[in-house]
Simulated scan of single mutants.
Amino acid sequence: MASKYGNNKRQKEHGLLVTINKSIVADIKRNDIDRGQFANEIGTTGGVLANKLDRQNITNDFSITELIHIMEITGDYGPLKYLCEMFGFVMTSSESGESITIDQLNELTDEAQIEQAESFSTNKKAFKDGKITNEEKENMLKEGMEAMEAVKRQLDALKLIKTTEEEE
């Protein structure tokens, strides 16, 4: 018998799933592994990981422990930042003297361009029929926010990069 409280369950937060997935994809590319290998790293299978990332799958959710583990493995705290912003908080780092490599900046630049292209594409599709539905508006806002966040990460990284004059 199904639980009578099943309808009370909160829907998965699409933006958080996107952020987690981006962390995973970046880690997979950086380490030249496949999704199944990454899933094994966090103690699950590729199928279960796919279900947890699927917005429509209401059975499989990420636990807090899994989310922490993903952030530890990927070194990307984007999901935590997303949660902070979702509740009106700003995440700051307690580490001082951070630096960034040109390769990391290059990756952030690529991500910013990709996010901007996705936002552009989403908007153009919505404008085609001359009307905007609630779903289209939600998608445009989501893609626009993701593009702005990617550009902000790129700008924040630019502040940390050491120039050749600073290294001398």
Rank of each mutant, 00 (worst) to 15 (best):
S3V: 07
K4E: 15
N8E: 13
E13Q: 13
G15C: 06
L16Y: 05
L16Q: 06
L17G: 01
I20T: 02
N21V: 02
K22M: 08
A26V: 04
I28M: 09
K29M: 12
R30I: 03
N31M: 06
G36E: 07
F38W: 04
A39D: 01
E41W: 04
E41A: 07
G47I: 01
V48Y: 00
L49G: 00
L49Q: 04
D54G: 05
T59D: 13
D61F: 14
F62T: 01
I64G: 01
L67E: 06
I70L: 01
M71E: 11
I73N: 04
G75L: 09
L83E: 07
M86T: 15
G88H: 12
M91W: 12
T92A: 11
S93M: 07
S93E: 13
S94R: 10
I102A: 11
I102E: 12
L105C: 06
N106S: 13
E107N: 10
E107S: 11
L108W: 00
T109F: 08
D110S: 11
D110V: 13
E111K: 10
S119C: 13
S119I: 03
F120L: 12
K124H: 10
F127W: 10
D129T: 13
G130C: 06
K131M: 07
I132P: 00
T133D: 07
K137L: 13
K137Y: 14
E138T: 12
M140I: 15
M140G: 08
L141C: 10
L141P: 02
K142F: 11
K142V: 03
E143C: 09
G144H: 06
G144W: 03
E146D: 12
A147E: 01
V151L: 13
K152D: 12
K152Q: 14
R153A: 11
L155K: 02
L155R: 09
K159I: 09
L160R: 11
